[in-house]
C-alpha cells in the first residue's frame, strides 16, 4: 500500500491478535456484553482503540458493530462490562454526558434535524452556550457573544464541507450525501477527541465519497481519533490505520488493514457464515479500486467471493 496518508508508526504492543493492547489507547473496553433475548449481540472480551489514528470496525451484517457503538456512546446499556475514555470510566454514563466528554457519534441512518436550518443544525453541535439554559436564554445579551463565536465556527466548518451556500436552507432540502456531511460537520462543532462514525459512506454517491474520505483523513491530521463502522472494503483499505473485525458479537481479528484483509478469520467472517451478505458492496467496489491502483487485495477477496458464490450456486442447483 503506497499511500502517503498512512501512518507507519506501530500502534499495538506485541502480536496483532484480537484484544491486543495499544501503545497509546484512547478508548479501552473490557468484557462488554449485550444480549437480545438470549442471543449475544455483543460479546467483546477486550479491545483498545489507538489514539490519533483511524480505526475501522468491520464485519458482516448482524455482527454487532452498531450495537457496540450504541453501548460505547451510552445509547444502549450493556448487561455487563466496563469501558473508559482517557482512563475515565464511561460505563453507565448517559449519552449526552458521553458526548460532552469528547466522544461524539453519528448515526447509520442520518439524523439531520430537518426543520432547522443547516446553520442552526451546526450551532446545536456547539458546547458551552449558556443561552441553552432556561433563565440565561431570556436575556439575549448574556448569550449573544458566544452565539457569534459559534456562528463563525459553524460557517468555517460549513465552508470546509462545501455546505456554506446552504447555511440558511432547511436541512430537509439537502441530499442524502449532504446530510451525511452535515452530520459529520455538526459533530465537529464541539471539538471532540474521538469521533465515532456509523457507516459514513452508506448511501453516498461516488463523487461525494472522495470528499468524505478526505474529511475523515483531515480529522486525524487535526489530532482527533476516528472510529468508524463500514461495510465498504475499499474505504477501509484507503483510510484506516487499524482494522477491527467483528463477527457474531465477538472481535475475531485485529490488525493493519492490508494484513487483516488476508486473514482467514476475516474471510470466514464475511464469506463463511454469511456468504450471502455484502457481496454487492464488495464486488461493486472492484472497478473503483482498480482505478485507484490498489485493486490487488480487493480483487483477491472478490475472487474468493466469486468462487464462493459459484459453489453456493452449484450447491443450490444440486439441492433441487
Amino acid at each position: 500500500m503506497a499511500d502517503a496518508t498512512k501512518d507507519v508508526t506501530v500502534l499495538q504492543v506485541g502480536e496483532p491478535l484480537p484484544g491486543v493492547p495499544k501503545v497509546d489507547p484512547i478508548l479501552v473496553a473490557h468484557g462488554v456484553r449485550r444480549t437480545f433475548g438470549g442471543v449475544n449481540a455483543v460479546d467483546v472480551e477486550h479491545v483498545e482503540i489507538p489514539r490519533n489514528a483511524i480505526t475501522a470496525l468491520i464485519g458482516p451484517n448482524g455482527a454487532g458493530k452498531t450495537t457496540f457503538f450504541n453501548l460505547l456512546t451510552g445509547f444502549d446499556k450493556p448487561d455487563s462490562g466496563t469501558w473508559s475514555l482517557d482512563g475515565k470510566s464511561l460505563a453507565n454514563v448517559p449519552a449526552y454526558k458521553v458526548a460532552r466528554r469528547g466522544m461524539v457519534r453519528t448515526f447509520q441512518l442520518t439524523k439531520a434535524l430537518s426543520l432547522l436550518s443547516v446553520l442552526e443544525n451546526m450551532r446545536l453541535g456547539a458546547g458551552s452556550q449558556g443561552g441553552e439554559r432556561f433563565l440565561t436564554s431570556l436575556v439575549t445579551r448574556l448569550w449573544r457573544k458566544r452565539e457569534d463565536e459559534i456562528t463563525a465556527q459553524a460557517m468555517e466548518l460549513l465552508a470546509r464541507f462545501k455546505l456554506d451556500t446552504k447555511a440558511d436552507d432547511y436541512a430537509a432540502s439537502l441530499s442524502g450525501g449532504q446530510r451525511k456531511l452535515l452530520e459529520m460537520a455538526r459533530a465537529l462543532m464541539s471539538k471532540p477527541e474521538l469521533v465515532m462514525l456509523d457507516e459514513p459512506m452508506a448511501g453516498v454517491n461516488p463523487a461525494l465519497t472522495q470528499s468524505l474520505l478526505g474529511h475523515i483523513l483531515n480529522l486525524k491530521k487535526e489530532g482527533m481519533t476516528v472510529l468508524f463502522v463500514e461495510h465498504d472494503m475499499h474505504m477501509v483499505q484507503t483510510i484506516a490505520d487499524w482494522v477491527i473485525v467483528m463477527a457474531e458479537g465477538k472481535i475475531v481479528a485485529e490488525g493493519y488493514p492490508d494484513v487483516v484483509m488476508r486473514d482467514q478469520a476475516v474471510i470466514d467472517a464475511y464469506l463463511g457464515a454469511h456468504h450471502d451478505t455484502d457481496l454487492g458492496s464488495l464486488t461493486g467496489q472492484l472497478e473503483v479500486a482498480k482505478d485507484l491502483g490498489d485493486s490487488f487485495l480487493v480483487g483477491e477477496i472478490s475472487d474468493e467471493i466469486r468462487d464462493e458464490k459459484a459453489d453456493h450456486t452449484m450447491e443450490a442447483t444440486d439441492g433441487k
Binding site: 456512546t73 445509547f75 449519552a95 458526548a99 426543520l115 432556561f134 436564554s137
Partner: peptide
Amino acid sequence: WQLMRSPWGRVIKGIREDEDAVRSLGKNV
C-alpha cells in the same frame, strides 16, 4: 418568543426533529 429564538429554543426544536441526534450532541434531552 424570546425563548424560542434563543439557544434554549434551538435545543427544544431540535428535540422535536430527532431527540437522539440532540442527545448525541451533548444535550440533556
